[in-house]
C-alpha cells in the first residue's frame, strides 16, 4: 500500500466515525434527563403548549424515526431548529464557529511559535537556570486557572492602563469588516481595511494570549523531552564531530526529528481548545461556539448540542488528518515505509 492510498483510507474512515458519533450524540442528547420542551417554553407554559412543541419538534416520535428525519435534514444543509435561539443550528454555527476558530487558531499559532523555541532552549540548557524557569512556567501555565489570569490581565492592561479593550471581538461603535469568511482577520485583510485589522488584532491579543498559556507550557515540555532524547542519538555526535554549526544541527536536524510527538500534541490540543475555550470566551465575552455549546447543554437544547458536537468532531477529524499528512513530510520512513510492504 502506498502512502497516498494510506491517506485516502484515513480520509475515508472519517465517514463511519462521523456516523457513529452522530448516532451516539443524537441519542445521548435526547435521553439525558430534563424535559427540553417544557424548559424552552418557560416556567408557566401549560401542558397543551408543551405537547404542541413536542409534536412540532418531532419529540413524540420513536428515536430511530427522529434520527432518520434528522439525517434527511442534514442532507438539506440543516441541523434542526435550536429550541432557544429559534434559528437553525447550522445558521447559529455559521455565526459562532468562525469566532472560535479564529481565536483558537491564533492561540495555537502563538503556542507553537513560543512553545517550540522555549522547548528547544530548555532542552539545550538542561538543568541550567533557563530549564528551571521553564519548569516553573510549565507548572504554573498548566495549573493557574484561565479565568483568574484572564480577569487579572483585564484588570491591569485594560482597566488600569487602558492599553487594550476589556471584552468583545470588535469595537461596538464601529461596523465590523465586511462579512466574507466570518474571520475578521481574513476579512479585513481581503478588503484592505487596515483600521479594522488593527482593531481586530487589539481585541485578539488578550484572549488568545490567555488561551495560549497552557498549550505553550505543554508544547514546551514535549519538545524539551524529545530534544533531550535526540541528543543521545548517534547522528548528533557524528554531526558535531564533523563540525556542523550548532544552530543548523539543532533547528534543522534535531528539531525535525523531535517534532513528531509535538505534532500529535498540537493536534489534540487544537481540538480540545475548540470546545474548551469556554472559560476564555466567557471572560472576554467572545461570541464563540464554546459558549453557545455550554448554554445548549444547560438548557438541554438538543439540536444545538448535536450540532456543536458534530462540528467539533469534524474539526478533530480534519486536524488529525492534516497531522497524518505532516507526519509523512517530517519522517520519510513513515511515507516510504508503506511502499515496501
Amino acid at each position: 500500500m502506498r502512502y497516498r492510498d494510506y491517506l485516502a483510507r484515513r480520509l475515508l474512515t472519517i465517514i463511519p466515525a462521523f456516523i457513529g458519533l452522530s448516532i451516539l450524540i443524537f441519542v445521548i442528547a435526547r435521553v439525558i434527563p430534563g424535559d427540553a420542551a417544557r424548559l424552552a417554553l418557560g416556567p408557566e407554559a401549560t401542558k397543551d403548549q408543551v405537547e404542541q412543541l413536542r409534536h412540532e419538534m418531532g419529540l413524540d416520535l420513536p428515536l430511530h424515526i427522529q434520527y432518520i428525519r434528522y439525517v434527511e435534514e442534514v442532507f438539506h444543509g440543516k441541523l434542526g431548529r435550536s429550541l432557544y435561539t429559534h434559528r437553525d443550528v447550522a445558521e447559529d454555527l455559521a455565526a459562532y464557529l468562525p469566532a472560535t476558530l479564529e481565536l483558537t487558531t491564533v492561540a495555537m499559532l502563538l503556542a507553537v511559535l513560543v512553545g517550540v523555541p522555549l522547548g528547544v532552549i530548555t532542552a539545550m540548557r538542561k538543568d541550567k537556570w533557563e530549564d528551571h524557569g521553564g519548569r516553573l512556567y510549565a507548572l504554573s501555565g498548566v495549573s493557574i486557572p484561565r479565568f483568574w489570569i484572564g480577569i487579572l490581565l483585564q484588570l491591569i492592561l485594560a482597566y488600569r492602563l487602558g492599553w487594550l479593550p476589556t471584552t468583545g471581538r470588535f469595537d461596538g461603535n464601529l461596523p465590523p469588516p465586511a462579512q466574507i469568511t466570518g474571520f475578521y482577520l481574513v476579512d479585513s485583510l481581503v478588503s484592505a481595511n487596515w483600521t479594522a485589522l488593527g482593531i481586530t488584532v487589539r481585541y485578539l491579543i488578550l484572549p488568545s494570549f490567555v488561551l495560549a498559556l497552557s498549550p505553550i507550557a505543554q508544547i514546551m515540555r514535549v519538545v524539551r523531552a524529545c530534544m533531550i532524547e535526540q541528543v543521545r542519538k548517534g547522528y548528533v555526535l557524528n554531526a558535531m564531530a564533523n563540525g556542523m554549526p550548532q544552530n543548523l544541527l539543532v533547528y534543522k536536524y534535531m528539531l525535525k526529528n523531535a517534532f513528531i510527538a509535538t505534532l500529535t500534541i498540537i493536534g489534540l490540543l487544537y481540538g480540545f481548545f475548540l470546545a474548551g475555550a469556554f472559560v476564555v470566551e466567557s471572560v472576554f465575552s467572545w461570541p464563540g461556539m464554546a459558549r453557545y455549546g455550554v448554554r445548549a447543554l444547560i438548557y438541554k437544547d438538543f439540536n444545538a448540542v448535536v450540532g456543536v458536537t458534530l462540528a467539533v468532531g469534524l474539526a478533530y477529524a480534519i486536524i488529525n488528518f492534516v497531522i497524518d499528512v505532516l507526519y509523512g513530510y517530517l519522517d520519510p520512513r513513515i511515507r516510504l515505509g508503506y511502499k515496501e510492504r
Binding site: I151, T167, S282, V283, S285, P287
Partner: peptide, 8 residues
Amino acid sequence: RIVPEQAT
C-alpha cells in the same frame, strides 16, 4: 452587550 462574566 452580552458579557458572560460578572467580574468583567
